[in-house]
Design a protein around this nucleic acid. Sequence first.
DNA 1: AATGAATGAGCGTTCATTCAT
DNA 2: AATGAATGAACGCTCATTCAT
Lengths: 197, 197, 197, 197
Amino acid sequence: MTRTGGDKTRKRILEVAEELFSKNGFHATSVNQITRQAKVNKALIYYYFKDKNDIVVSLFQNILEELSGPKPDPSGQESGRGGTDIREALKEEISFLERKKNIISVMLMESLKTHDQDTPIFKCAEMVMAREHERPKTKPVLFHEFFTGFIPLIAFVALREKFCDYYQCDKEEALSFFVKSFKASHINSHIECKEEA
Amino acid sequence: MTRTGGDKTRKRILEVAEELFSKNGFHATSVNQITRQAKVNKALIYYYFKDKNDIVVSLFQNILEELSGPKPDPSGQESGRGGTDIREALKEEISFLERKKNIISVMLMESLKTHDQDTPIFKCAEMVMAREHERPKTKPVLFHEFFTGFIPLIAFVALREKFCDYYQCDKEEALSFFVKSFKASHINSHIECKEEA
Amino acid sequence: MTRTGGDKTRKRILEVAEELFSKNGFHATSVNQITRQAKVNKALIYYYFKDKNDIVVSLFQNILEELSGPKPDPSGQESGRGGTDIREALKEEISFLERKKNIISVMLMESLKTHDQDTPIFKCAEMVMAREHERPKTKPVLFHEFFTGFIPLIAFVALREKFCDYYQCDKEEALSFFVKSFKASHINSHIECKEEA
Amino acid sequence: MTRTGGDKTRKRILEVAEELFSKNGFHATSVNQITRQAKVNKALIYYYFKDKNDIVVSLFQNILEELSGPKPDPSGQESGRGGTDIREALKEEISFLERKKNIISVMLMESLKTHDQDTPIFKCAEMVMAREHERPKTKPVLFHEFFTGFIPLIAFVALREKFCDYYQCDKEEALSFFVKSFKASHINSHIECKEEA
DNA sequence: AATGAATGAGCGTTCATTCAT
DNA sequence: AATGAATGAACGCTCATTCAT
């Protein structure tokens, strides 16, 4: 390894781990695979991380920090009944999530294991949702935001590729379809809720 | 293990495997664990299944066969605009899926791994969706049904418990919230679609 | 399995075992492989043979019995200095050994393991040699017959195919070369011995 | 095992493996046995060798390299008709091969398996033969050298002990008998060949 | 004579982790 | 900050063998 200082190495380990975890899952990825692909000595991984689990925990922390970071500027205006501006905002959000999709996929995988006690997926969801509106305060809204908002969103970024492969669908087209569908269901019901209230 | 009929043993292996896979994930579950919990000799597992993967594949096949089986009787009447009857139907469907949630969770976990080539999750989704209406034929509808219909549904059955734990929420209450939210978003948008058409 | 009586089954097991043992070696051949190829139930093998070793022992016994059986008729005349008749006799002997080459190969493999106590290869050699002349009585002759007679012969039948593959050589041509070479070395030295005596 | 240099460990593994392979055969030798006798951790074997087969391949490579190494000095003079000097040279060669007999035995065992594709035994033979004279160029000579030269030689070093046990023969005496016999057959036929030519 | 189910021990291999340097 | 060597435990899987029928 070139002598470029430790932080770069640590970062490379994290990047490779993220890629491999999302590719094969956490448990199906061995520390050896990471060392090979990151081209680091095996013992070095244990210099930077106390164990294999610490790697994935670090990845989760990083993404949570990123999400809590600078909010997106609400440059677009939220006009009633949602015009193309809402769709554009959605697409931007999706493209943002797409860049994080690897680690989010891992988070989701892990959260689906019924045994593991606490999962960061809820914290993650809160942060993603907080990017759009104020944090939901009532439980009904919470459910709504999580299951019909957050979940479809990350499912889309996570599964888009496979979905398109399976159904022989263009990826850009897929985005349009999803956005339209998401707007018609989740976003529209927001307005109704507001209208009802 | 005592000499029981072979099919019973095979079934017990599958049941235990399903439970453990959904608890810890496929890769994090060892054949030894299955062995212990199902109280079968390890070699016997390989008498019934060619390898560990064959177990999960068998589970997937089973659930797909079940789903393609007898459709639910539409005892309730589908009145327009959806009253409590729709909610009841939804709850029934959810309780049906809940009984399959373990294996569906495993399927979802595996489908999130970007590497694995083809996943049965789409076939599964088609079948679940086919239980409600005729199979979607256009791509936009496909996206809609999958990402805002199927996905929230299975996410709910899969994550309900953890969600309730995390947010200190009663599980029955959770069901109501979800049903209401699902109806307001996904189902409502169906009607709109129809109205548009 | 067809109900054709036990002896046929036993014979089939032996035939398959011989083939597989010579293909992969005794230890590298599993009882399962034999059952598969012989299409017999696994437990049935233990009905006919007390264990796996008993199979190979049976094979060895069989071949020793065969070799001790009817001697070849010396139809040809043994003229001095050896003309084509000796070569013909040699070719016949080789073709005879070729039919037994599988089990002889196994015997040779096993005899090369330094640990195994007693090997039937010497008994086998004696019998093969006895087919040609009276049993050697003096030790020098014994060495001569075994190492420069028997050994090259069985090495040829055992390795002929691979040798021809490796050196891109026709198999019939190979036979001629070997016969000529064998006659010039081993057989010729017989005569010398006799002349010396 | 104590922390010694890595190469020492690797060497010890190879030595033990060679001994055990020649004792029981490749397949009948378990990695655990090697582990025990070489007093190395099992995982360490896979640190040095990619799998069990890699061990035997390494052994084969090593011996081939050794054989291709420094040729023996032809200190003795090759007088016609072969006097005691030829016998001495033969004995030296045999004692040289005896030191390699373990690995050569393994090579021979493996080459007798009809299934295994390519065997190093021919390469090995070429090198051994090249130690005595220039490499044979015509096919007849090739056959002669291999089947009546190389094969008896290695058969002798490989089987000498068992042969002597079986026939109650002194090992030194055995050497004399073999040398005499080998000279009378293989070597003598060389001269004839030359004379013919 | 023949079978399907079952078994304990061991296989080759890899795991996450730690050591000394 | 980085490395090569080493480790104990466990992995998935197969072995030869036996059971009841």
